[in-house]
Amino acid sequence: MGREIMRAIAASEPSLQLAGVWVRPDSPLLDRPMTEFAGPAASEVTASCDLSAVLAAADVAIDFSLPAAVPNILQEAVKARKALVCGVSGLDQDTLTLMQSAARTVPLFYDRNMSIGVALLRRMVEQSGQVLGEGFSATISDLHHAEKRDAPSGTALMLGETLAAARGQDFKSVMRYDSEQAAVARNSDDIVFDVRREGLHPGAHTVVLAGPDENLSFSHTVTDRRVFAVGALRAAKWLHERPPGLYSMQDLLQG
């Protein structure tokens, strides 16, 4: 995602500029100028493994790394007093707790999916759950590329959690998923996950609510991973100069 973000910055209006790029010490991009991805405006920006130096040069940092890297990034963002947009899914509870603590010092924007379309999908799922209640069985289909590690995806889990909360359910009690994709026995109020990992697909999610006399279906399909970079940049602009706190795409939708 880092390269997509740099390309999106290059294609954006002049108010957004690439200030720095943090990479692993063994990255082939280390010490290389970022003009290949971010254009001539980034001629003086080289990839660095010094996170504190990268943060010092930025107004807002964007993180699409891996779950294991997030705690250190949070700690460094707090030290530098820098706003942070985090789009890493699969975070454990300890990291989420650390994020809540960090948000008391700096503005943090966290969402498991940076697509504005998914944010709208989540809102529609929430409203449907509130109106329809438990009389409609729920299936969430989750399609991603074959190399995606987490299943169900963070987005699929977010949609399930949103639906369960809207219906007054405990998500862990009603979630049904078989990693072997065997047929799952279900009760009428369960939330069943249908997960597929195949090809190079960037992501598609469908929520089906099936009632005794009618079905309701919501779908979102990614056609280009650039959508996540564009959403992250939109979040960064929105977050800049906000007070400390933990924000999400739902806050951005509200303005």
Rank of each mutant, 00 (worst) to 15 (best):
S153Y: 03
A156G: 11
A146Y: 03
S173I: 01
D94M: 14
D178C: 04
T139F: 08
Q127N: 04
D92I: 10
R123N: 15
S137M: 09
V118E: 07
T97A: 13
M124D: 12
L143D: 07
A165K: 08
G135L: 06
L121S: 13
A164P: 03
G168S: 06
T97P: 09
I116N: 11
Q169T: 03
T155C: 02
V106K: 00
Q130P: 04
E161K: 01
R104S: 15
L143E: 07
E126R: 15
E126F: 10
E134D: 09
S141G: 13
I140M: 07
A151W: 02
T162M: 01
G133M: 13
E161T: 00
Q100D: 07
R123S: 15
L132N: 05
M175E: 08
T162L: 01
Y177M: 03
P152F: 01
V125D: 00
G154C: 02
E161M: 01
Q181T: 07
F171D: 00
Q181D: 14
L157W: 03
S141A: 14
F109E: 01
G154E: 00
D111Q: 12
A156I: 10
R104A: 13
R104C: 12
Q181H: 09
A138C: 15
F109L: 06
L121I: 14
M175P: 02
E180V: 05
S153W: 04
Q127K: 12
G117W: 11
L96M: 13
A151C: 08
A102D: 00
G135A: 09
Q127R: 11
A138S: 13
M99K: 11
S153M: 08
N113I: 04
A146R: 15
L120N: 12
G154A: 02
D150C: 10
E134W: 11
T95P: 08
E126A: 14
S128V: 06
Q100Y: 06
I140R: 01
M158S: 11
S115N: 09
E126K: 13
D111I: 03
A119H: 08
F136I: 04
G160L: 00
G168A: 08
Y177C: 06
T97M: 15
V106H: 00
I116C: 09
D170N: 14
S101E: 10
D142W: 08
E180D: 11
I140Q: 00
Y177Q: 01
S179Q: 14
S115F: 10
M99H: 11
D92C: 06
K148F: 08
A156K: 12
R167C: 12
L159N: 00
L98C: 11
L143M: 15
S153P: 09
V125Q: 00
T105D: 13
F136A: 02
